[in-house]
């Protein structure tokens, strides 16, 4: 089942085309939306929330048309904006309870859900203090909590790791992964950092200048390549020479050697060469694509 689907979605502003004929579908689970700043990620989310009309094309969220069923979509979807959006003079509890009621939850249910969700995002006693005194990491958690409080079917997270330190980033990513798996809520998360999404997404959509560059499962992005990485303690150069002699294609990559795999014989050749030269073999690893590489290749083609 598709969580969302767009068809030729285009959004033109007076001076810039933010989305250009974007046709893409997203299934359940965690989906990453990658693009540089200004690639059209935030514009896409606003259109999907029914807050911004598209110039042309159509989009459906949870099988509801964004142009006509915006109010119904917003009842079932959570949204964490990229920018700061918290008033400093209220506590996290009060704020999240209030926004739960704005999503249509009755008073007691709003209180229970807010307490639950704040616990899940990891805000303990500090949730009774004013938000003004919170760290960036805590503020991001409150922003996430308000997006989850009404138990949506799908949440849009716009740059959730922005401004976080490495540890906060790791915790936020782990939390997003939990939301997508354990909580059973589909997630569309944007980022301009590909490495982040690689760790948590099932599917990645790459857009650039409002156009779709690629949309595929994470396994396709990171599938095994036909190279093997070899690391030895010393004597990288003699090993490279020896392997070339044995008819292997070798390319140096810093202190590492990348050897193209032509068959099982390649592994034997590496082993034999290391033994013959009396080298200390540290690592022999199957090469994997990283999304960064794919992104670099794709943009190079465009």
């Amino acid at each position: 089942m598709h969580i969302l689907a767009t068809e030729g979605l285009t959004k033109r502003f007076p001076t810039v085309t933010a989305l250009d004929q974007l046709t893409v579908t997203v299934g359940t689970g965690v989906t990453g939306l990658v693009g540089a700043n200004g690639a059209g990620k935030s514009t896409l989310i606003k259109i999907l929330l029914g807050l911004l009309p598209a110039s042309s094309g159509t989009a459906k969220v949870l099988d509801l048309d964004v142009a006509t069923r915006g109010a119904d979509i917003r009842r079932l979807v959570g949204y964490m904006p990229e920018h700061e959006c918290l008033p400093p003079d209220v506590s996290a509890t009060e704020f999240v309870v209030h926004l739960a009621r704005m999503s249509g939850l009755p008073r007691t249910a709003a209180r229970e859900r807010a307490a639950d969700v704040l616990r899940h995002v990891g805000l303990a006693e500090e949730r009774y203090r004013s938000i003004g005194g919170y760290s960036t990491g805590m503020k991001q958690r409150v922003k996430l909590a308000q997006a989850l409080v009404h138990d949506p079917k799908l949440i849009f997270l716009d740059e959730p790791t922005n401004g976080l330190d490495p540890r906060g980033r790791d915790e936020m990513l782990a939390l997003i992964r939990r939301i997508g798996t354990e909580f059973g809520i589909s997630v569309l998360v944007t980022s301009h950092l590909l490495g982040e999404l690689e760790r948590i997404c099932d599917h990645v959509i790459v857009i650039d200048a409002g156009r779709l560059l690629r949309s595929s499962a994470i396994t396709e992005f990171t599938q095994a390549t036909r190279t093997v990485t070899v690391e030895v303690d010393e004597g990288t150069e003699p090993l490279a020479a020896r392997l070339t002699e044995l008819g292997q294609k070798v390319s140096p990559h810093g202190r590492l050697l990348l050897v193209e795999v032509s068959g099982p014989g390649t592994y034997d050749a590496i082993r034999d060469a290391a033994v013959d030269l009396d080298l200390c073999l540290i690592r022999l690893e199957q090469g994997r694509h990283r999304i960064e590489d794919v992104f670099r290749e794709e943009t190079a083609h465009v």
Partner: peptide, 17 residues
Amino acid sequence: PDLRFRVLPLYLSRPIT
């Protein structure tokens, strides 16, 4: 406060118009 601290988008992403 809703304008200054940009809380308005949080309202508008809910069933409120």
